[in-house]
């Protein structure tokens, strides 16, 4: 085993460290280590972020699919609610009767405004909120 010829076997040289300015070297080394660490962590963080975003994306796509499904169900509900049978049933419920012989009235004036939807079908009224005061208003009020 001793016959192995080690080309650097006779003298070992350490890393040459300049004798003076040791503090600067220390900072440089630390900077390099930090840089290397950041360099090593960056892909990990990037991958982690990408994976996280990917799951968010999948969740958003699933939500989109779900919302589209709900839209189709709502459209179907609207179609059912506007069917002839349902309109007739509802008309009878609120006391309307089919007419046998309508009376036609010819008028020369413009007709009335279109009938409004019954209140139950209108969006619920929300209490009107006063407009927020501008940000500078308190300062003006504070002035004598």
């Amino acid at each position: 085993m001793a016959a192995i010829n080690h080309p650097l076997g006779q003298r070992r040289h350490g890393i040459p460290i300049p004798a003076s300015g040791g503090g600067r070297v220390g900072f440089g080394l630390a900077g390099a280590i930090i840089l290397a660490a950041v360099g090593a962590l960056a892909p990990v963080l990037s991958n982690s972020l990408a994976t996280s975003r990917g799951f968010d994306l999948q969740a958003s796509e699933a939500q989109e699919t779900q919302l589209n499904g709900q839209i189709s169900v709502l459209e179907s509900d609207v179609a059912s609610l506007t069917s002839l049978q349902r309109i007739e049933r509802r008309a009878r419920e609120i006391g309307l009767q089919p007419i046998d012989d309508p009376i036609y009235v010819t008028v020369s004036e413009p007709g009335p405004a279109p009938a409004k939807l019954p209140a139950e079908y209108l969006p619920r009224a929300t209490a009107s909120q006063p407009a927020p005061a501008p940000w500078w208003k308190p300062f003006v009020d504070w002035l004598p």
Partner: peptide
């Protein structure tokens, strides 16, 4: 515009 046939999910 009355719906005679439509698709639901």
């Amino acid at each position: 515009g009355g719906v005679l046939a439509t698709s639901v999910d």
